[in-house]
Amino acid sequence: MSGSQRISERTLYIASLVIAALFLVNIYYQLHVAPGWQWGPALDKMPKTMLTDFRDEVYTNAKGGWAAGEYIASDAKFDKALFPEFVDGAQVKSELLQPLVGDGRTVVAIHKLTDAGIEKTVVDVYHIGPRGGRIDSIQRYVSQE
């Protein structure tokens, strides 16, 4: 096709807005739908905020089983035997001995755990997955007091 043609500026502008709307729909699909996010309370929170909410559920609300299911990835690496609080109704109390220490996606909790009247000083090192925001590993160090 050759030769000069004419088009109104308004038509072009409206066409550009329609294309922009189509692009927005596509971008929304690519970011919201296509990745197949497993939405839940762990997602889209900063690591320390997520850990704070997780600890509230486990130690304050005694919903350790539910919290573990929602906040910890199904393939997370941790020794389940070391975490008796990860069942609903567990009466395990935790008192942070200092604020949570965060560095990127690693968060460290230094706390006093009380389980069946026995107190232990525990250091938990949580690592949070890159996208999806669930815990993908926990290392627990228990003091030998």
Binding site: Y28, L31, H32, P35, W37, L43, D44, M46, P47, D103, G104, R105, T106, I128, P130, R131, G132, G133
Partner: peptide
């Protein structure tokens, strides 16, 4: 719309 990415490596995070 999507969870805010917080990096795949320690420096990015």
């Amino acid at each position: 719309i999507f969870p805010q990415p917080v990096g795949n490596t320690p420096l990015s995070s």
